[in-house]
Simulated scan of single mutants.
Amino acid sequence: MARSKKHERAGGTPATVALDRAGVTYAPRSYTHDPGATSYGLEAAQALDVDAARVLKTLLVEVDGGLGVGIVPVARQLDLKAVAAALGSKRAVMADPGVAERVTGYVVGGISPVGQKKALPTVLDESALAFETVLVSGGRRGFDLELAPADLVEVTGASTAPIAR
């Protein structure tokens, strides 16, 4: 998998810029986003013809007055109790979408775990480690990035835990 220099030259998204700066190899994967799609992640898996277990969604949660990030496969749900425990908290609730957009700098449906405006404690569901590569949002709807899960952990500073159900 070769890193795309096109996105680096064009300025890319904050996610591609962060990956380029970190020297991470990734493949940009674009598709035509359907504005009527009800699940952005499942839309990406279908449009890119990729197993939904390899396509990950980025979800923001509120824990103990702060925010954290959970990254789970798009066909599964975030286990709020498990992500709270992984973040060292007793309780987690989903963050308001407006807050998620403001804090990350991305729109809902295009929130990337990479290149967020503010680094947040991040947990990757351990199931991602079973794959050679996974896909995450590249920072806008219709644009994903394919990379090794170990690189995702490294660039986001994520821990791993069983946080999906």
Rank of each mutant, 00 (worst) to 15 (best):
K57G: 04
T16F: 09
H33S: 05
R91E: 13
G105R: 08
L19V: 10
A18I: 06
A52S: 15
V93K: 15
T58D: 04
T16N: 07
A18H: 12
G88T: 10
Y26R: 09
G70V: 04
Q46C: 00
D34P: 13
D79T: 01
E62S: 12
P35L: 05
T32L: 14
E62L: 00
V107S: 13
V72G: 06
V107I: 12
A44R: 08
A95L: 11
M94L: 15
L59A: 09
V72N: 07
E43S: 04
E101D: 01
I111R: 03
G66Y: 00
T25H: 08
L87R: 08
G105N: 07
A15E: 07
A45K: 04
V61I: 10
A37D: 01
E101I: 01
L19D: 07
L80M: 01
G70T: 03
D79M: 02
Y106L: 03
R29C: 14
V74S: 03
K81E: 11
P35R: 09
A53C: 00
R54V: 03
A27K: 15
Y106E: 02
G68V: 11
G66P: 01
P28V: 14
K90A: 14
R76G: 02
A44K: 09
V69Y: 02
Y31I: 10
I71L: 03
P35S: 07
V93A: 12
L60I: 04
R91F: 05
T104F: 03
R29S: 05
D49E: 15
P73T: 11
L87S: 06
Y31P: 10
A22D: 06
A53S: 13
L42T: 04
A37L: 03
A37G: 13
V55L: 07
T38D: 05
A85W: 07
A37K: 04
K90N: 13
T58G: 05
T25Y: 00
P28T: 10
P73Q: 10
I71V: 15
G65T: 07
A95D: 09
P97M: 08
D20P: 00
L67R: 10
Y40P: 00
A45L: 01
G23Q: 12
K90C: 00
V50N: 02
A44E: 04
V99L: 15
A37E: 05
A100D: 05
V74Q: 07
V17Y: 00
S39L: 00
T13W: 11
V50W: 05
A15T: 09
V50L: 05
A27T: 15
I111F: 02
A100C: 06
P28M: 07
R102H: 07
Y106H: 04
G41L: 07
A100R: 08
D51G: 03
Y106G: 02
A85T: 14
A53F: 01
L87V: 08
L48E: 11
L80A: 06
G105M: 04
R21E: 14
V83H: 05
A82Y: 08
A27H: 11
A47D: 01
R29M: 14
G88Q: 10
E43F: 09
Y26Q: 10
D20L: 00
L80D: 01
Y26V: 11
A75K: 11
D79W: 02
Y106N: 03
V50T: 12
G98V: 01
D51T: 03
D51P: 06
L67P: 11
S39T: 02
Y106V: 01
A100Q: 07
A37C: 03
